[in-house]
Amino acid sequence: MSETESNSSNRQAATATGLQHLQPFDESTIFEEYRDIMTRSHEEQRQIYSEFKAFTDDVAAWVKAASQFDNFRSRKRIKTRLEWIKAKHGEIEGVRSEVVTCVEAVRAALSILGGITGPLKGLSGLVDDGLEGEDSSDGQETRSAEGMGPTQTCRE
């Protein structure tokens, strides 16, 4: 036998034996498996999407709450600052009124000393200019220098 004849007979024998090991092709089984795989994949995608949607809803709620909390905190901070400014304004106003009272007491004391001893040397300009040109009807209570000892201050 020639070599080509033996190769072709071997191929026919191999093909005949190889076909015996193959099972018949069943399209319905393959389509069923494909449908099952796609159904599971679709379910997984739905679950992932619903988890993602819940997560984004939670993030949106957190953003809204954080914004409201920041607004509340900034309002509270502004209110605290305004209260502090009002308190400082009250303190400054108290110091101002004490200074005005002390100045009035010193002017009264200088006028008493000026009236008793005449114009004081070096202070005559203050006494003459400061008291004659002023009107004491500004609503401020003036304290008399009488009754103030050497250790007393102008503070009430």
Rank of each mutant, 00 (worst) to 15 (best):
L22W: 03
L22P: 00
Q23C: 02
Q23W: 02
P24A: 14
P24R: 04
P24K: 09
P24G: 04
F25L: 12
D26C: 02
D26N: 12
D26K: 03
E27S: 15
S28I: 05
S28V: 07
T29I: 09
T29H: 13
I30T: 11
I30F: 09
I30G: 01
I30S: 12
F31G: 03
F31K: 15
E32N: 14
E32V: 02
E33K: 08
E33G: 02
Y34L: 03
Y34A: 04
R35K: 06
R35D: 09
D36C: 11
D36T: 15
I37L: 11
I37R: 12
M38H: 12
M38V: 15
M38L: 15
T39A: 14
R40N: 13
R40H: 13
S41A: 13
S41Y: 11
S41T: 14
H42E: 12
H42A: 14
E43Q: 14
E44N: 08
Q45H: 08
R46P: 00
R46D: 11
R46G: 01
Q47P: 01
I48A: 13
Y49C: 04
Y49N: 10
Y49Q: 12
Y49P: 01
S50A: 03
S50T: 06
S50V: 01
S50Q: 10
E51D: 10
E51G: 04
E51R: 07
K53N: 09
K53T: 12
A54N: 01
A54T: 08
A54Y: 02
F55D: 06
F55N: 06
F55M: 09
F55A: 08
F55T: 09
T56P: 01
T56A: 06
D57A: 09
D57E: 09
V59H: 00
A61Y: 00
W62S: 14
K64T: 05
K64E: 11
K64Y: 05
A65F: 07
A65P: 00
A65R: 00
A66C: 05
S67A: 07
Q68E: 15
Q68R: 07
Q68W: 08
F69C: 14
D70G: 07
N71I: 10
N71V: 10
N71G: 11
F72Y: 06
F72L: 11
R73N: 09
S74H: 03
R75L: 08
R75E: 12
R75Q: 10
K76Y: 01
K76L: 06
K76E: 05
R77Y: 05
R77K: 13
I78V: 11
I78N: 05
K79E: 14
R81W: 02
L82E: 15
L82R: 07
L82D: 11
L82N: 10
E83W: 02
E83Y: 03
W84M: 14
W84L: 15
I85A: 06
I85P: 00
K86N: 10
A87D: 12
A87Q: 10
H89D: 15
H89S: 15
G90F: 00
G90I: 01
E91N: 04
E91L: 08
E91I: 04
E91H: 00
E91G: 01
I92K: 00
I92E: 02
I92W: 00
E93W: 00
E93S: 04
E93I: 03
E93G: 01
E93A: 03
G94I: 01
G94F: 01
